[in-house]
Amino acid sequence: MTDIFGVPIAVLLGQLLLGLINGSFYALLSLGLAIIFGMLNVINFAHGAFYMLGGFAAWLLLSSLGLGYWETLVIAPLVVGALGAVVERLFLKRLYRIDHLYSLLLTFGIALMLEGLFRHVFGAAGKPYPIPPSLTGGINLGFMFLPMYRAWVIVASLAVCLATWLAIERTRLGAYLRAATENPSLVQAFGINVPLMLTLTYAFCVGLAGFAGALAAPLYQVSPGMGSSIIIVVFAVVVIGGMGSIGGAIVTALALGVIEGLTKTFYPAASSIAVFVVMVLVILIRPSGLFSREA
């Protein structure tokens, strides 16, 4: 039994692994989107651009400062997060009181600006980023070859997702956050600095996107368009999962990555639209999304 429907099992597992990796990136991004939406009531269109920024930060730190992979993995998200904090303080903050379609349009504009700027400065072509020496090579599992870096990507992103989830569900700070989502003025009345909390939340989630971008740099090339191509798929993921639950967002993201991988194996022509087809089905069957709390 080495073939499934005419596809060698090693190829199938390879595509599943790729799907799982894509799924981990979707998870990191949709997690951030869901938290930002829950706290700030903002759909952050710029999330993809911040992901791209993370990738470029990693590439720039390596190529101009010669910093290693591990330092980069810490610094890139911090840089992106700091920029996010500036965006929140300067722009988003002023839009909380009006229709949230405006904040969507604002972040869309910011995404266009970032993408346009990077395309202008660095060109449209991808920039290669080498896999760090400590993570080259791979493990032979007997039935397939598992490259080390890919295994690391899945482990790292799942660990970060899980830690974020635990921090929100189990810690005191997380409890404040959840309370502020329900009733910000009451939480503020208890002496908690809600505006600061909003800024930090936005910065943190955008930092997660930057982390994903830095993590993705050695796998895919770093290019100005990498953000906009992933953000639309992540939107579909968010529509499918519904933004009510963080755990739901992670599970949906991984599942859709795997579905995409499977489609690539059995019917490659449809792989780019697989997620969207699932979205259509979910809207027809369960309009509010799989894990949503809204009616």
């Binding site: 266009l112 600006m113 993408e115 346009g116």
Partner: peptide, 18 residues
């Protein structure tokens, strides 16, 4: 860069004259 300027217009419109 056209994309950048289009984005800038978006930001200015949303922030200053909706």
């Amino acid at each position: 860069p056209i994309t950048f300027i289009i984005g800038l217009f978006f930001v200015v419109c949303v922030m200053m004259f909706r």
